[in-house]
Design a protein around this nucleic acid. Sequence first.
DNA 1: GTGTTAGCTGAAGTCAGGTTGAGGTCAAGA
DNA 2: TCTTGACCTCAACCTGACTTCAGCTAACAC
Lengths: 158, 158
Amino acid sequence: MAVDGKDLLTIGEVSDRSGFPQSALRFYEREGLLRATRTAGGQRRYERAVLRRLAFIRAARTIGVGLDEVRAGLDRLPDGRTPTKADWTRLSRSWRGRLDEQIQALQALRDGLDSCIGCGCLSLQRCRLYNPGDYVASYGAGARLLPPMLRRPPAEDL
Amino acid sequence: MAVDGKDLLTIGEVSDRSGFPQSALRFYEREGLLRATRTAGGQRRYERAVLRRLAFIRAARTIGVGLDEVRAGLDRLPDGRTPTKADWTRLSRSWRGRLDEQIQALQALRDGLDSCIGCGCLSLQRCRLYNPGDYVASYGAGARLLPPMLRRPPAEDL
DNA sequence: GTGTTAGCTGAAGTCAGGTTGAGGTCAAGA
DNA sequence: TCTTGACCTCAACCTGACTTCAGCTAACAC
């Protein structure tokens, strides 16, 4: 494990410590989100800093940031030196506003639903749930507001 | 349009009035969410009630309900008679709780982010953003909390 | 040196929720 | 009747984020 004093990690170790499957780590490397050195035999060896990078990726994915954007963020990290806390903080600060927007969008939806429950309208013209606001509507018909991970199994009382 | 007094709608009319592309209407029919009668020549003719059904589908999709679950909901509508407002209300009431849960999950995420910003930690062990609560975590690694439609283009200050 | 476990690649598959295209048919107005 | 726009089917394709598989090699413990 501790090889020539450099303490590099195998893909299995990175997988165990980060929780990402090895397949995802290889995928992220292909996609340019991670880098790894190789042994003479071609196996990946990761620096410890990759764990922080993966933490960033996990956090970004959790709030719905796409990989393209994650890559863009990671690409702005300083090239030569190991990123500092301040670098990571700068990166994550912009998510706060994004999350706020997402919460507001959902709350608007809920309010719309409240105005529908009881009237049973779901009117094509008037219902706020059917005709969400501009922000939501601008993404076009059929778009998904919420992802699989927040979906529950069908409610019994439906 | 008004054929033998029954006032059936063509797929084009349903598309125009509902906002769903014709391709989606055909897809929903294949998936068992809609039904249509056919003309002698095989063209679809829809009853007006399909518009309300589509309103339900649109609303459900907007809050992130998958088609499987939408179908399950629609299947519970009374078979013989035209659904009443009360039927639709019953169907949509259960979404309220779901939306509340979704909003709470996002708020928890935001609070976690707040505790991270400034410390720049993103610690694998401690960071709440990296290790979201049980509800979220139970959906497994790599899951997406938020969908494309709530994603903004990359922020300039990232 | 041998066995076991871990790792490699590239291609293909998965899932949802549809869209797109080719090639052909129907319905309605002039 | 003719024409033109609307409609039909079936199969293939799309996006995003990965996973899975087959067939093979590396690393390490004994």
